[in-house]
Design a protein around this nucleic acid. Structure first.
Lengths: 215, 215
DNA sequence: TAGATTGTTAATCGATTAACAATC
DNA sequence: TAGATTGTTAATCGATTAACAATC
């Protein structure tokens, strides 16, 4: 029985992956936890602890082989899986997301895009035709996507998630302002743009309070 | 001297704010930590602890007045500040961001948009004309924005951040794949779309490992 | 071999939860 | 007043950091 990996560790994995991608691109083929810790601004101890949740990828006296560690982390993240994904809501945000994301590099393969706007249906983005959301049932039953990206207006999020859950989809990337109701066996990643803005606003405010000694 | 509020608490503030916005919109005017905890899926204890970092906003035997708490949190976050913000990089993502975000509600006022693409310069988005990035120095010196949204290609992020830092900007919303170099007195919020995708990929993979008892 | 650096255990630190006296 | 619920202190739990023996 595996011990469960904490979400703190999981949250850091993509960042490790990015740094390793970079190191590899720069032709560096070995790195110690100490060197990496300096680049990333975290402790060497934390890096070693994190990696050892999944196995011993280093070598005493040497450090870590970049290419090897890079591949191991890709494996841990499951990036080779190419889980089938659909996107619901092809507004500005949805379309930009499609244009800017190399899903294949991040473990997914985008196989369908849906909207209810007849002006959009039929249009192509990055080779994928926008389909009528009203036909989504047939599509899902035929193609069995694993994951759905929700970039609809907030007012319809609950309905869409409920529809898709009924069709067996259990993973969501939530791009909407609304919260996705917390279900037992679904996995959800939220990208709440407005939360990020508010956090930044807080940080700016807190910093200027400190500077001005207002409290 | 104020004790520093932990980042765990700060990260939760926007979520509280969203729930309170919702409660208010639904005409609910009081709520106990217990009721809110059930809605949000966190403990009542945590809610009370979090809020008490900033003051005692409730009343024994009664709970919290929704409108009052809503306003208090808006104040804590600094949403009334309307910090001047600029956006650099008016690609799909930058433009979608402008279209979809009500900056005014999140503490900011968007006063400028910049790009280097002559095909984009002069075009208007939501009433703001895209300006030539080469003229950004004059603009910043005249208008003193507080925050910059970085949605440029990753290759130019370092240069842009360095330019803007020299011009006195110390707050960044980073929308790019790259990391913003960690400086002493700058505040940064990152939205790494690909990290979110990879985290979701991990969660899907981890779940199916468990189901299939692969480990 | 000697030096370097891991994997891992132990110590510390911080965040979450529980409990309850204060009080509306 | 009695019941409800806060604010806050104490207990628990988990995550981070430090230390060091193992070993390449």
């Amino acid at each position: 029985m595996e011990k469960k990996v904490s979400s703190s560790v999981i949250n850091r994995l993509p960042r490790y992956y990015r740094y390793l991608t970079d190191l590899e691109a720069n032709g560096i083929d070995r790195i110690s936890s100490k060197e990496l810790s300096e680049k990333m601004g975290i402790t060497a101890s934390q890096i070693r602890q994190d990696l050892n949740c999944f196995g011993g990828f280093g070598q005493q006296g040497y450090g870590y082989n970049v290419k090897h560690l890079y591949n191991e982390i890709a494996g841990i993240l499951g990036l080779k899986s190419q889980y089938k994904a659909i996107l619901v809501g092809a507004g500005n945000m949805g379309q930009a997301l499609i244009q800017n994301t190399t899903f294949e590099k991040r473990g997914f393969s985008l196989i369908g895009v849906f909207d209810i706007d007849t002006a959009k249906i039929g249009k192509k983005i990055k080779g994928i035709t926008i389909s009528d959301y009203n036909n989504i049932k047939n599509f899902v039953e035929e193609n069995h996507p694993t994951m759905a990206i929700i970039s609809t207006p907030r007012t319809v999020v609950n309905q869409v998630v409920s529809d898709l859950t009924d069709l067996g989809i259990k993973a969501f990337l939530n791009f909407s302002y609304a919260e996705i109701p917390h279900s037992e066996d679904a996995v959800v990643e939220n990208i709440h743009l407005s939360d990020s803005l508010m956090r930044l606003c807080y940080k700016i405010s807190a910093k200027s309070d400190k500077t001005n000694n207002k409290n």
